[in-house]
Simulated scan of single mutants.
Amino acid sequence: MPDITLAHAQELIAAADRAGREAGVKAVFAVLDKGANLVAFARTDGAWLASNELAVAKARTSVMFEAPTAGLAAPIQIGQPALHFDHIHAGGLLLVGGGVPIVDDDGRLIGGLGVSGGAPEQDAAIAEAAIA
């Protein structure tokens, strides 16, 4: 299987940083490979330190589910069981907007991008803009 390169990861972070600046969001960006291992990481000056772990967790979640995390954040319905991964720890997952899978030209998963710093909708839009 193909894997994401450092150069590709850095290009995605640069694109996410541009999108974040345009949105006025100080954010953190994490790119993981298809095995959920960190390839590249960057934090905008002034971004919240808490966003470091959140960006990695969003990227990890997008890799593990091979889906954008925004689509995994189903609303809670009273009286129905809910699946929660909203805590951060080693190997943690986060079901909130801002994580997107990265695929190659053939549609095969090669990694994930996580963005954290704004509202979940802002983080999702920044991540989507970066991979477009």
Rank of each mutant, 00 (worst) to 15 (best):
A47T: 00
P68L: 02
A82T: 12
P68F: 10
E66N: 14
A9T: 09
E128S: 01
A16P: 02
Q10D: 13
T69I: 08
G35Q: 12
P2Y: 12
I88Y: 03
A127L: 05
A42S: 14
P120A: 07
A7H: 13
A23Y: 01
G79A: 12
P2A: 15
V25L: 05
F29A: 06
A47S: 07
Q122M: 03
G24H: 03
G111V: 07
A119K: 12
H89M: 10
R18W: 07
G24R: 00
R60V: 08
A129G: 06
V115P: 03
V103R: 15
K26L: 09
S62K: 01
D106E: 13
A129T: 04
A50W: 10
F65T: 10
H8S: 15
F29E: 04
I78Y: 15
G98V: 03
A57G: 10
D105R: 13
Q10A: 13
G98S: 02
D104K: 11
I131N: 05
A130M: 06
I88A: 08
A9K: 12
S62R: 00
A36P: 07
A55W: 01
Q10F: 09
L94F: 13
G99I: 06
S62G: 08
P120Y: 01
E121F: 06
A67H: 15
Q77K: 14
N52M: 05
H84W: 15
M1E: 11
I88T: 09
G118E: 02
A14T: 13
D104F: 12
A47E: 06
L113Y: 01
L109D: 02
Q77S: 14
I126F: 02
R43P: 04
A127H: 04
A59R: 04
G71A: 11
A9D: 05
A70L: 14
I4E: 00
A47M: 01
I76W: 14
G111H: 07
R43T: 07
T44G: 11
R18G: 11
V63Q: 03
E66H: 14
G24P: 05
N52F: 00
V103E: 12
D123F: 07
D123R: 00
S51Y: 01
L83E: 13
L6M: 11
R60G: 00
V103T: 13
L95D: 08
A9S: 14
E11R: 15
A16Q: 08
G46S: 03
G46A: 02
H8W: 10
T69N: 06
G99C: 00
L54T: 08
E22R: 04
G107C: 07
S51K: 03
V96N: 09
G92N: 08
G112K: 04
A40F: 04
A74P: 13
L6C: 11
A19D: 04
L113K: 02
A14H: 11
K58H: 05
F65L: 15
A16N: 04
V28T: 02
A127D: 00
G46V: 00
L109F: 09
V100P: 03
A16T: 03
R43H: 02
A73M: 13
G91F: 06
E11Y: 07
I110G: 02
L95Y: 11
S51D: 04
G35L: 14
G112N: 02
A19V: 04
N37Q: 12
I131Y: 09
P120S: 10
I13A: 06
T61R: 07
F41D: 05
P75R: 13
D33E: 04
L49K: 06
T69Y: 07
P2C: 12
A132Y: 15
A14P: 11
A42P: 09
L12Y: 06
A30P: 02
P101H: 08
